[in-house]
């Protein structure tokens, strides 16, 4: 018998060591998230995955699963909170979806759709963030960075290169690259790096392929983020990978 906890009134099985988020995704249950990635240790910074456990709110991606927990996630109170957090991320950076080459592949945009965000609500911050086109193959557009640290983690943990890091504090926190010049061309970043694949928005872009896949036929144009996220998640033993959102678990 595997242990289970309750997620919005339905049981979710889990294995020891799994977090609430990991178990939920493995069981085909979506909890909105941005900084969580199934291949990396969760760190819980975006807070979109905030759930209620016994009346207390906590990030589900870092919350260890425990038998008998009563977790609430898909309730209006929390979805409203998530909508606000997404709005905060939108106004903090410079996100102009219609002219962004990541449009349709962007997890921030897709999550905003998922959460039915209609307006930015808050005053835009319009931060002054640079572009870095110095690398022959790769463009960095810091305007869109949501500080999820996935590229930082991928570059250090998988690529062993430490190309990216975070600098500054508070609202001045920003992504930097590992070069005295501050330019990507002076790092050892390569197209084959894991760090190329993990950006949930449109900061790290391969040059020359921007619109090869037309808008309308992109990742989140096909299926909403809630379904895509389940495809990407390691599935519960016996269920196998690559399943669709409609596939339940036994």
């Amino acid at each position: 018998m595997t242990d289970t906890f309750q997620l919005d009134g339905a049981p979710v099985p889990f294995e020891p060591g799994q977090t609430v988020m990991q178990a939920a995704l493995a069981a085909g249950r979506y909890i909105p998230h941005l900084c969580y990635h199934p291949e990396f240790k969760p760190h819980g910074s975006c807070k979109l995955c905030t759930v209620k456990v016994g009346g207390r709110t906590t990030a589900s991606c870092t919350m260890p699963a425990e038998a008998g927990l009563n977790v609430e996630s898909n309730i209006e109170e929390l979805n409203a909170l998530r909508r606000t957090l997404v709005q905060m991320l939108f106004v903090e950076g410079n996100h102009f979806c219609p002219s962004c080459e990541a449009s349709g592949n962007c997890q921030l945009q897709a999550t905003a759709y998922e959460l039915q965000m209609m307006t930015p609500r808050f005053n835009e911050f319009y931060p002054d963030r640079p572009l870095d086109g110095s690398h022959p193959d790769i463009l960095l557009d810091y305007n869109r960075c949501i500080l999820c640290e996935l590229c930082v983690r991928a570059s250090s943990e998988v690529d062993g290169k430490h190309v990216f890091a975070l600098a500054g504090r508070g609202i001045t926190k920003h992504l930097i690259v590992n070069a005295r010049s501050g330019l990507l061309k002076d790092t050892d970043m390569a197209l084959t790096d894991k760090a190329m694949q993990v950006c949930p928005v449109g900061v790290i872009l391969q040059k020359g392929v921007g619109f090869r896949v037309p808008i309308g036929e992109r990742r989140y144009d096909q299926r909403p983020v809630s379904a895509q996220a389940l495809d990407d998640a390691p599935r519960q033993a016996g269920v196998g990978g690559g399943c669709t959102a409609c596939e339940g678990t036994s």
């Binding site: 910074s45 975006c46 807070k47 106004v91 903090e92 500080l147 504090r169 609202i171 001045t172 926190k173």
Partner: peptide, 10 residues
């Protein structure tokens, strides 16, 4: 604010 999490940073 250390800037780690969205709600506090923004």
């Amino acid at each position: 604010s250390c800037g780690f999490c969205t709600p506090c940073r923004v």
